[in-house]
Every structure is written in C-alpha cells, then in structure tokens.
C-alpha cells in the first residue's frame, strides 16, 4: 500500500469512526460541511446582491448558455432545449391529459363551501381569475410568503374546511383552473422593499437553492445552473429559469397531476436529502426565489411532462 493510499484509508476510517451510523446525525454532519462548500457556488451570484441584480445575472447566465432561446421559451422546461423529447411532448399536448383537471377545477372553484356558503373567489383579488402569475406573494400581516396553493388552503380554513393535500389531488385541479385563466401572463413577482422580512425570505430561498444537500451532495444549482443542457444519463437537465411557469403538471411518471412542491421533493429525494414537506416555509421561500428569478416568463400551466 502506498503511503498516499494509506492516508486515504485512514481518513476514511476516521470518518467512519467519528460519524455515527444514525442516518439523521450523518445527514446533519453532511449539511454542516455543505454549508462550508455552499459559499463557493455563490461566486457567480454574490450572497448579498440586490434581488434584481441576482435576477439579471441569473437570466444572463442562461442567455449565454442558450443564445437561441427567447425568455418565453423557458416556460417549456427541458423541451425548450431537447428537440427529440419536444416532439413526443407536442404530440401529447394535442390531447392534453390535464384537460379534465381544468374542468374539475372550475367546478370545485365555483362550488360554495358547505359551512359558510362562501366561495374561493371571495378570497382572491379579481375573484381569482388571471392572477396566478402574481404568486407567490409576500403577506405582510402573516410575515410569510404565500403561494397560490397556500392561499387556497388559507381560504378553506377561513371557510371552515380542512386543508387539501398540497402535492396531488383536488388542489391540483384548482391550481390547474387558476393557472389556465392566467396563461400567457408574464410571471410578475415583487419583493416589497418596505419589509425586510420579505428580503430575508427571498434570501432563505436563494440559500436553499445554492446550498448542497443530501448524501449525494448536490445543490439545485449543480444540476439546473451549472449543468443545464447537459445529460445526466439520458435526461437533459432543464434551466431553472421558468421552473415555476408550468404548474400544476401532469407527469407521465406520476400518472396524475402534481404540484411544484411535489417536484421539488422528488429532486431532493433523488439526491438522498431530507425533503421538507410541501408548503413548508423553506419550500415556499424556494418558490419565491425561483419565481422571482423567472419574472417575465409566461405562465403555461397546467402542462404535461415526462
């Protein structure tokens, strides 16, 4: 054994001895290291730049990577850059499997709540029509980011109804209908300057995006910024620009509709990281960051994906 090899082995043994086998603790240990590493992915995206500066750099990165794309193309995710997959996708979109979801969503949206007789429309500006491109929003009274899914569940709570599962089922129908009425509207997210908590929420979302997570030690940015357009096995990696435009989505892999947070959780699980629950504060803040980065990209939800 060479001395170098010996050193590696000893380093390895040291790791095995110092980290316990308890998965939770091991994960915590990873994330402490990840925090140290996380900073490095920020080089191109300084931590304390103004959000508008972040967005400019973020969009510029992809403009350089994909000079042939217009901003609106990014709403189509990987199909904007994968001509082969785009063909089968366009074939599916001719008889879109989400059509029923829109219809069901419209029905549910207009149905009075049994307890109060109120409707979803009462809880939203413009009666909830054509507003999806303005979510998530900063809610000053709550001091939290409110996503459209969260706003629907808040509305239910006020109407004495149980909250809906935030990953699949009824909520995807409601979101499908609401997104459908907002189609082609450019995403338009604001971070109010008069409330520092809004900026802090944005920054938490941004940190989460650039930090490495899980046993496989990936950041979202590793795949969707650094390696966008490259293949991981046979999958081409999409840009994160426009990642929030096409929801909810009927995924062939799921065989049903799912929400954006369901997709976040899937990517996290694949890198063997703990996936926070759908609509948890951290995932809402992540959505806030990604939606703000995508300002200007038109809403295409509901959509279909592989």
């Amino acid at each position: 054994m060479s001395s170098n090899e010996g050193r590696v082995r000893c380093a390895y043994l040291y790791e095995v001895l110092t980290l316990t086998k308890d998965l939770k603790k091991v994960r915590t240990a990873y994330s402490t290291k990840s925090v140290l590493l996380a900073g490095l992915l920020f080089v191109a995206f300084p931590l304390h730049a103004a959000p508008s500066q972040d967005r400019q750099q973020f969009q510029e990165h992809y403009r350089r990577l994909f000079p042939q794309l217009r901003l609106s193309d990014y709403a189509n995710g990987v199909y904007a850059i994968d001509p082969v997959a785009r063909e089968s996708w366009q074939a599916i979109e001719e008889f879109p499997p989400y059509e029923e979801a829109i219809e069901q969503g419209e029905k549910l949206f207009n149905m009075p709540f049994p307890q109060t007789g109120g409707r979803y429309a009462d809880c939203f500006p413009e009666k909830g029509i054509g507003i999806a491109h303005r979510y998530p929003q900063w809610d000053k009274d709550k001091g939290e980011v409110v996503t459209l899914a969260q706003a629907l569940n808040d509305c239910r709570e006020r109407s004495r109804e149980k909250p809906l599962d935030a990953e699949k089922g009824e909520i995807t129908f409601l979101l499908a209908y609401m997104a459908y009425t907002s189609r082609d509207q450019a995403i338009e997210i604001t971070i109010p300057e008069d409330d520092p908590r809004a900026l802090a929420a944005y920054r938490q979302g941004k940190n989460f995006y650039y930090e490495r997570h899980g046993q496989l030690n990936f950041a979202c940015a590793t795949c969707h910024v650094q390696n966008a357009g490259k293949r991981i096995r046979s999958e081409i990696l999409s840009a994160s620009l426009g990642h929030t435009a096409n929801w909810p989505t009927y995924r062939l892999k799921w065989g049903e509709m799912g929400t954006l947070h369901r997709r976040f959780r899937e990517c996290l699980t694949q890198i063997r990281a703990d996936a926070p629950p759908a609509q948890s504060v951290v995932l809402r803040n992540l959505e806030y960051f990604l939606s703000y980065m995508s300002n200007g990209v038109p809403i295409t939800g509901p959509s279909t994906r592989k």
Partner: peptide, 30 residues
C-alpha cells in the same frame, strides 16, 4: 500517476475542485 491518486478523486472530488458536480463517494459513504 497511480491508483491511489485515482482513488482520491473518487473518494472526495470536492478536495480537488470545490465546485465539482461529482458526489464525494467515500466521504459521504455512498
């Protein structure tokens, strides 16, 4: 230059390139 060096790359690629996309197979006990 030798197997040990190749092994180091696989054990923890972040030692040589902190921004690498390659998972640290040994360090994270993958």
């Amino acid at each position: 230059k030798d197997k040990a060096q190749l092994r180091d790359q696989i054990f923890d690629a972040t030692r040589f390139n902190p921004e690498t996309s390659m998972p640290p197979f040994g360090r994270n006990r993958i």
